[in-house]
Nucleic acid binder design. Structure first.
Lengths: 342, 342
DNA sequence: GCTCGGGATGGTAGCGCTACCAATAAGGGC
DNA sequence: GCCCTTATTGGTAGCGCTACCATCCCGAGC
């Protein structure tokens, strides 16, 4: 009666081994691990002892197959190196580190098609929740998310018509606030410089435009953008282009802090005084903004908190109680610094 | 004879549905999907048609359970926001995006214990390969990696005694090269400024020390470090500390580029001339180094390439052929710039 | 004392897939 | 023409776990 045990498996103990050792049924071991409250004190202790002695660890794959639900959070971001998303992801990781949930991270490269592809890969795993960046999913992606059968949180932005839940802030308001600040400080020929120009950047630009038009200062030639990925060196180049185009430029609202830093360095290099000759405002408020010389005014966004909140909302939804507010606006903050202190 | 189909599952088509529709056995469908070469042209076409018609996608959990091997790469890095690791991770993602492998990323927070914990979580999933940052695993982690039953690649550094494979470069040589460059350019009171001081930073410091001692310039008071996480603002503060301690300081080798940028900004603020009064060398050569004013000398490291190479080696090992060289040194490059051009 | 409800425990039957082996057909060498 | 190898296909039996349902026991209620 030698049972052909662990012919395939690596010989790791299974739930049956634990059950045998503890003198209980396998299902009771399963319950003791997942819903300890439903198992008597005595058995629970016996089972715990057996688990410890054998070094038993449940097989997540078997678990996922049997329960038709994997303890995995699927996370989709457009970039892994962009500090903004890295912070969101960090918030997600930190919030999930004590939970049984694993994380599967996908990089969409700012591509809707790639997002669709990744959702098709994530779906069959039956994740416990999905967190996706942005609110501009393709119709196909939207359908996939709606039919995912798990909580979905769109992060980084807020907007009408959430697929399920949302955490973020208004990029349009952010862009408007940044621009209004420049105007308030006396800048008149305020340019917009932006790289990548993903949907969020587009909305910041829309905010810029709103503010400029309201002040009667709008001029399309003040706008300099490119679809090229953002970088500090690109910021420098775009600023030179902008200045060549509009020599009277006296302020710039930058798409993000990298661009702003590039602008600052170019000003140093060309001996353009900041903030007297040119005022600079960035977006996101990376640590370096306050250290730069002169320090750079920026819109502080709460990336880490967005990640944490998204997880909290997803966990609440998994636990059954859909949270009251499905859309959470975490806002932003204008950090006034030397670069606009005329 | 109504079969109680999909009582639990979400009603998604299974391999049996495909087999039925194609008029073949389930196992043949499985083969057609995994080893198309072993199935005849005819059946393959029929099966493909059935797959397409039903929209069948294999269940990765069932697959992992049955084959005792998940199509997952486990990746462990100490930080998600540090650009250096983000680049490595990006290389890994890009290399794996066309493969069937998913990625499970773990954040160790520079903690050996956390690394152990994560390896214990990753292990039971039976990943196809593991990629871990650094070569200073705890003995427990080392054992877990040795017994993981899959290829293991240690990245970011090279060293003796690989667990399995390694891709990286010598941080000691990097630190030495950076310091020698400063000495060569005529700097004498060359300081070392470092934050976080993880094992790699320690080795850069050792390289600094080697170079300074060889030149007869070593003085322990020239070293300023902290275990606090690195940032641009911290760089500024550490530089002020260093200068207060050693007013004759005429050069600094910085642990990384963030610190170097902080030093540069402080020099601007305090009207200290770079490179005349102070020479600055960074480490990693982020994009902004070449844009900074003055541009900052740095040690260029090949982070993205490390990620790509690690995946290539792991895939080769999975395919059966352990690569010739188990330890790959991708080296580094000294980028001479204005900050040390005396 | 008897029935009933609810908590605790276990058995059975899969979840969807693949390893293993068997079976059959198709060629190749003598 | 026969035997053996190779290629192709399928059946069976799990992989390790949990959903579902049955069973059992105890105390409460009448």
């Amino acid at each position: 009666m030698t049972k052909p045990r662990s012919r395939r498996g690596g010989g790791r103990p299974t739930i049956a081994d634990v059950a045998r050792k503890a003198g209980v049924g396998a299902i009771t071991v399963s319950r003791a691990l997942r819903e300890p409250g439903r198992v008597s004190e005595d058995l629970r202790r016996q089972i715990q002892a057996a688990v410890a002695e054998l070094g038993y660890v449940p097989d997540p794959n078997a678990r996922a197959l049997a329960s038709a639900r994997a303890e995995v959070f699927g996370v989709l971001v457009p970039s892994l190196t962009n500090n903004v998303f890295a912070e969101v992801v960090r918030g997600i990781y930190d919030s999930l580190s004590d939970s049984p949930f694993r994380i599967q991270l996908g990089n969409t490269h700012y591509s809707g098609l790639e997002e669709e592809r990744l959702l098709q890969v994530f779906g069959p795993q039956r994740p416990a929740a999905l967190i996706v960046a942005g609110i501009d999913q393709t119709p196909a992606s939207r359908k996939l998310l709606e039919n995912a059968g798990c909580p979905v949180v769109q992060v980084m932005e807020t907007g009408p018509d959430p697929i399920d839940m949302m955490v973020g802030f208004s990029h349009l308001d952010g862009g408007r606030t940044a621009t209004e600040h420049l105007i308030e400080m006396g800048y008149r020929r305020v340019g917009f410089i932006g790289a990548r120009m993903d949907p969020r950047s587009q909305r910041r630009l829309a905010g810029y435009r709103t503010a400029m038009e309201k002040a009667g200062l709008f001029d399309p030639r003040l706008i300099t953008t490119t679809p090229v990925p953002s970088s500090v060196s690109l910021g420098r180049e775009l600023f030179r282009d902008a200045l060549a185009k509009v020599p009277t430029l006296d302020g710039v609202f930058c798409n993000n802090d990298d661009i702003a830093l590039g602008v600052l360095f170019e000003c140093h290099r060309a001996a353009i005084h900041v903030p007297k000759t040119i005022g600079i405002v960035g977006f996101n408020d990376l640590d370096m903004m306050q250290v730069a010389f002169p320090s750079i005014t920026s819109i502080r966004t709460h990336r880490y908190e967005i990640g944490r909140r998204a997880v909290a909302m997803a966990l609440a939804a998994i636990a059954g109680g859909r949270p009251q507010e499905r859309v959470v606006d975490l806002g932003f903050e204008l950090k006034r610094r030397e670069s606009t202190a005329r």
